[in-house]
Design a protein around this nucleic acid. Sequence first.
DNA 1: CTGTATCCGTGTTGATACTG
DNA 2: CAGTATCAACACGGATACAG
Lengths: 236, 236
Amino acid sequence: MKLQKETRRTDWPDKKRYDDACAAAHAMDLFGERWAMPVMRELLLGPRRFSGLKTSLNGISAKMLTERLEGLEAAGILVKKKLPPPASVQVYELTRWGYEAAPIFQAMGRWAVRSPRHDPGRPFSPVSLMLSLRTMFSADAAGDWAGRLQLRMHNEDYFWIRDQGEIAIGRGAIERPDVLLTGTPPAIASIVYGNRPLDDAIGAGDLAVEGDRSLIERLPACFPMPEKTSAPERPS
Amino acid sequence: MKLQKETRRTDWPDKKRYDDACAAAHAMDLFGERWAMPVMRELLLGPRRFSGLKTSLNGISAKMLTERLEGLEAAGILVKKKLPPPASVQVYELTRWGYEAAPIFQAMGRWAVRSPRHDPGRPFSPVSLMLSLRTMFSADAAGDWAGRLQLRMHNEDYFWIRDQGEIAIGRGAIERPDVLLTGTPPAIASIVYGNRPLDDAIGAGDLAVEGDRSLIERLPACFPMPEKTSAPERPS
DNA sequence: CTGTATCCGTGTTGATACTG
DNA sequence: CAGTATCAACACGGATACAG
């Protein structure tokens, strides 16, 4: 019948939304579309520009990025804003509520690293590496490790700090870093998560360390990878 | 060029997967497809049959359901199994790892109820109502409330128990319930979340209460709804 | 730099009918 | 009950070209 088609169109453009009271399903309506979640992830450490997002989001097209940014803004998850005159540049920033989605990313990350199909060797954006560090950090395993790391990836500065228990990560440079680590995200990941010898990475020119090298050497122990799920296992 | 097309096809059928080390992105690869997440949700309280899933997932087609079940099984999230002879019925059950995805649903639910667009008046499946109760329960707000509820929705039994602090939910009947509540999920939601007067629901025949009625009357106070996000708000 | 506009192949979906 | 088969509509995403 034609009526169906017509009502579909006029009802609302909710062809692909779950018409469900379940809030988790609603979350998928909000950021379940392709690329929406990675876009949010890239903004989790602060405002970014269009071009920065495009490069970080490996393979996204300008069209997609524009559409997702519009959609996420309409949903109230981010805002588009123009920086004041000296800079006068367009940036996208999460709203307060948008930032509050961070625990979802943590829960997903913690769970999905155990997937048999998960491969940490894929393209890694600086922001997602930083977020993964925060997620995978284990206070128990780290023991008394403390320090202030400055990380430089693709010529952008990020930091990672642990000072008795608490950890903090973010974009930008910090004062008095104990050590400066320069390299690509995959290179850094390979020594933190992939138990690649530090000398190997430095020797190959993938990584440069400036400052207290011992802090880096103790790093892998702070981020124990959980074992992957094995064969399909019944709950018990 | 044709080459592109050809390599695309042979490379792997990962046209729509994020080729990303970010584990959260990988989670979307695993259950970000349409209907995958609601299917998992319906299984979170125990094994279900094809027909049960189909009715609970408002509007899903048999084709979709089949495809998602296959995909989730291939991902190691659920298993298809046949119950022993007396029953001899096909059911789908989450693997242990599948069950461990529950915190993701909690985080998503907690966050998405605050969405300006979220509408608790939409179709509600029994399982998602039960999960929402567990998610939204506030120990502080509940104070000394304690009791054993038996809920009957669409002729299926579910329970909700709080005994000094701890809460438990599940499918099936319990012994010595303090009160039996019969009605549809939306009807129950309307009195718990929608501050509809209990007498109103009973009078309209939407709900039946058998047992300690005062427990039901104190229920809404145990599940305070967080305020929705208002206008786009900057982080601070 | 920050997008917009258009085109078009391809993939996905829901309806319907059918099978064991 | 538990799916499978087929099909047509349509939404999506990538490429390209272009504009402010």
